[in-house]
Design a protein around this nucleic acid. Structure first.
Length: 501
DNA sequence: ATACACGTTGTCGCA
DNA sequence: TTGCGACAACGTGTA
């Protein structure tokens, strides 16, 4: 008979600190002298399901997690396969009695959880789930709002105003030898290398943001030490096109769970305490609350990542256009600011929030009239900080499909970037073919006389694409389409909910 | 009951 | 240079 085991299943909680579910598993193993197996399941198709930069970030995070677990006399056991199929097998093989995991709300995880929990119930495995990916228990926020999701940020804030946020916990206990299995040193469970995943690492550029808890805490501490900067932080006043990020870039660490949102919350409270500071929605705390807002909305809404069947999403007749979508995704729209942002995204896996506004508006209601769902899929592939709720929620916001309705506020691909980068340095970096353009034409190269284009070594239509649409004209037409869609939507709503007499 | 103010982050033209 | 209103708006809280 194999000795009984306790499993902690890591998913979007790739950290030791403030990981209650992990601590529960450790305590259970210690108290009952069971074997402890912290696991992570990699799908064999991982490299086809997530973009290269994010795969690299994930592998780095797993390696760091393994190293941190080893400091506690444990390790990470990597399993390969489809979780709902491979977990029952290893649970049997390892004689698992106890499973701990974090509550995740991405439907992919929810679906897996149902299968696993059913198996556990039938096989007498005790399951412990902990809310620790968000500051608040988003399900109880919805309950507090009588079962419906808050549709405005202010409403959300009022719902959580009086909720106490528990202090983050530390996990420092070093495990007894008795909790290690005989196959502790088995290489089969090691974090895979890129080649083991059939992934060609040389296709990636230099790594700008290294994954892992260690790096996350380092970055958190660097920014929290700048007290004045934190207290003065106002998101709308940060630049989307600075050469180095004007914001913290903690998002990839929070989305992978390398950094606890709750720890970030308490660190911010500490820094703000006793000082005059900015407030939500624009403050750093406000940014964290936006995440909570979208998590709440995502957890309480059916088909949140789709337009059809999504009760909060205005139905808009977007047009399928793979040519437009491809040009946008590859940074070949002929609008240098848009292209620079999309190329930065592809190369580095992170772009500023306002840059996301610019390109999301451009793809959808602003210029190309392509569905936000198509854009969201591209972001899912390319963003290091991809997060199911935030991605869908922000795309709906920018396409004026939900939460935001002032669709006549259209970002200009020419004017918007100039506010914070007159010289176009950002464009020159990420669209190097335009590097030598005079400042006068850097945002609008098609306006440059032929002789100027030739001198700059980049002829529009030859060395750099002609602009895909005429923004000045098309955005007006699109506004009319938005207006028509809103009108239809309103009519449908009044039909569904007739006034009671 | 109904009206009204207000909301993270637009742009342009005009005074 | 800066400030303001117009431009195709909806959900929510308050009066």
């Amino acid at each position: 008979m194999v000795a009984p085991s306790v499993v902690h299943w890591f998913r979007l909680d790739l950290r030791i600190h403030d990981n209650l579910a992990l601590r529960n598993a450790i305590n259970e193993a210690e108290n009952r002298s069971h074997i402890l197996r912290p696991i992570y399941v990699i799908h064999p198709e991982a490299k086809n399901r997530i973009g290269g930069n994010r795969l690299r970030f994930l592998i780095q995070s797993l390696n760091d997690l393994d190293a941190n677990l080893r400091k506690l006399n444990s390790r990470l056991y990597i399993l390969r396969g489809d979780a709902s199929k491979c977990l029952p097998k290893v649970f049997k093989k390892w004689n698992v009695k106890y499973l701990s995991l974090q509550v995740d709300i991405d439907p992919e995880y929810i679906k897996q959880d149902e299968v696993i929990e059913k198996y556990c119930e039938e096989n007498d495995i005790f399951v412990v789930k902990r809310v620790q990916h968000t500051v608040y228990d988003v399900h109880s926020v919805v309950k507090k709002n009588n079962g419906s999701i808050p549709l405005t940020y202010q409403k959300f804030l009022s719902l959580v105003k009086d909720t106490q946020v528990k202090e983050p916990i530390e996990v420092t206990k070093v495990l007894s030898e008795g909790c290690k299995p005989v196959d502790f040193d088995c290489k089969d469970y090691d974090v895979p290398t890129f080649s083991q995943l059939d992934f060609d690492e040389s296709s990636l550029l230099e790594c700008k943001y290294e994954g892992g808890e260690t790096e996350a805490l380092k970055r958190l501490n660097v920014y929290m030490a700048k007290k004045q900067w934190v207290c003065a932080f106002e998101k709308p006043n940060t630049s989307p096109n600075s050469i180095e990020p004007s914001t913290t870039v903690l998002s990839p660490y929070i989305s992978h769970g390398c950094l606890s949102a709750k720890l970030f919350y308490h660190k911010l409270k500490q820094v703000e305490s006793g000082n005059r500071h900015s407030e939500p929605p624009v403050s750093l705390m406000g940014q964290l609350m936006w995440r909570e807002f979208y998590y709440t909305a995502g957890s309480g809404t059916e088909n949140f990542d789709k337009m059809v069947g999504n009760p909060v999403c205005t139905q808009i007749p977007w047009k399928k256009n793979d040519e437009y979508l491809k040009a946008w995704a590859e940074g070949k729209t002929g609008y240098p600011f848009v292209d620079a942002i999309m190329r930065q995204l592809k190369q580095e896996g992170w772009i500023h929030h306002l840059a996301r506004h610019m390109v999301a508006c451009f793809l959808t209601r602003g210029d190309l009239w392509v569905s936000w769902e198509d854009g969201a899929k591209v972001f899912e592939d390319l963003l290091l900080d991809y997060d199911w709720s935030l991605n869908a929620g922000n795309w709906m916001w920018l396409s004026a499909s939900a939460f935001f309705y002032k669709y006549f506020r259209v970002y200009s691909p020419v004017a918007f970037g100039k506010k914070t980068d007159k010289e176009g340095l950002f464009i020159r970096k990420y669209v190097p073919e335009l590097k030598k353009y005079p400042t006068e034409y850097i945002y609008e190269p098609w306006k440059a006389p032929k002789s100027v284009q030739t001198t700059a070594g980049c002829v529009v239509g030859v060395d750099y694409p002609k602009r895909i649409v005429d923004h000045d004209k098309i955005h007006k037409e699109n506004m009319q389409k938005m207006s028509a869609a809103y009108k239809l939507n309103k009519e449908k709503k009044s039909l569904k909910r007739p006034r009671p007499d």
